[in-house]
Design a protein around this nucleic acid. Structure first.
Lengths: 251, 251
DNA sequence: CAGTCAGGTTGATCTGGATCAAGGAAAGCT
DNA sequence: AGCTTTCCTTGATCCAGATCAACCTGACTG
């Protein structure tokens, strides 16, 4: 098999702190909105002062834990995280995977405690925003407020799609398409991706058995929809995949 | 069968416009937060001016439609609504049911279009809040901003629970417990409820077949967990139901 | 570099809930 | 009242995906 996906490393990631005192890490979920709105230096400085760079977290380390009091949200600067909720019987449910530029922890606002664990899947870095501080700032920066609303609402859309009734193949296709698109919007190649998560974790996300995930990926490979080398994926027929995912993604 | 649930009507509903020029409809999701925060008269007047009472909508009528541009959110003043998304193959998914005091339309913020239809299940009334206006106001009323964050985050929690992997009985139990608790927080009796929705709608919400919903309710009745007369439900053993729902509701 | 172990694949079997089918009961219409 | 329609229930069968089982692979360990 000659599939060489562009494995993300600390070195070649386009997402990183640019070291500039005034501007933000270029991919931060908040920077685009703030820049777009054309805020003055003072407001930008406020937002910048708010940020606390944290990490690295190594694979398997917790960024936050279920039941911890909610204090902050985390923008992924580099790496990948999963959020997981473990029920009384020990069943793990993966709520989501988060890649650079995305924000983790928004589901903790209402309960005022994190309702899940956040665990790094690989070496990962974050911008930590105190939630009281960022929402106070949002009061003076309507664009930031809007951005926060959008982020939570987007997350809500994701959860809703996941809740839908759909066949295993449809969900798997939707997972791949969605992930690829999210990487694409962050500036990564759109047709190749490295899966930072195990089959087990994909399964726990899509409420499938790991065996089913494996079989479906195998089938996708055999029918030429994807090229696959364990965790390296190339979308060979994105249109057919999208067609499969159509009902899940709602378009 | 001698089960007489307290059927909600326009007349006996505790939720209604109180007719006071200055205060809000007592159950409105925003009134509590605003009152609690102790805002001055001017701010309260702003919020009051913002509200537009709409309705009645009769059973089956649309409050908004999928793909319509997002302009407003709706607090249920009386009645019940469902939000439904219909995919390309005509499969209906019920995203949620909303009772008086709850807010519909928050999932439209990110896509900037309603991602679903909102349909009244019975005669229903709403407070309509222009979203641009209420979020502008939220800028001057941090408590209101916080309330909006919470509402969306709470909705996110709901969607997440729905997305979980769980047996049909667990999901059904969770549905009943959750609905009863929501009625209870709105001041209705905690152990008796009238289901405003059909078995089909419950099924489309819990991704079950209507037959399965019927069978499980029958089983709950036979095992004494509930008393049941078609749409009138009495929770006879709320603790056992809660135990069943435990893994779904996460506690 | 043999040994261990977690992760992945593949095959065989089982099962929870869907689907198909047939009536009953309540509500709206003429 | 009768008629129609929609909703609900109950029984019989079926199937997508879970579970059980076996083996493979590659990465880390002593």
């Amino acid at each position: 098999m000659t599939l060489h996906s562009h494995r993300l490393t600390d070195r070649d990631s386009p997402i990183a702190d640019d070291g500039d005192e005034v501007r933000f890490c270029s991919a931060c979920a908040f920077s685009a909105a703030s820049m777009r709105a054309g805020y003055d230096k003072a407001a930008l400085r406020d937002l910048h002062v708010l940020v606390e760079h944290v990490g690295p977290f190594r694979a398997g380390e917790h960024v936050f834990r279920a039941h911890d009091p909610f204090r902050a949200i985390f923008a992924v600067r580099g790496g990948t995280v999963k959020t997981v909720s473990v029920d009384a019987d020990g069943n793990e449910q993966v709520l989501g995977f988060y890649i650079p530029g995305e924000v983790v922890g928004l589901n903790a606002i209402y309960p005022e405690r994190y309702p899940c664990d956040a665990i790094a899947l690989e070496n990962s870095y974050f911008c930590r925003f105190s939630f009281p501080a960022i929402s106070a700032l949002a009061t003076r920066m309507p664009g930031l407020q809007q951005q926060l609303f959008k982020l939570i609402s987007k997350e809500l859309g994701m959860a809703t799609r996941l809740a839908g009734d759909h066949g295993a193949e449809e969900r798997m296709a939707a997972f791949l398409i969605d992930l690829a698109e999210r990487y694409a919007t962050q500036g990564f190649p759109a047709r190749r991706l490295h899966l930072a998560m195990s089959r087990n974790e994909i399964a726990a996300h899509l409420r499938l058995a790991p065996e089913t995930v494996s079989r479906i990926l195998g089938r996708f490979r055999e029918t030429g929809l994807i090229a696959l080398d364990v965790r390296e994926v190339e979308l060979r027929a994105p249109d057919q995949l999208s067609a499969l995912a159509r009902n899940v993604l709602g378009r």
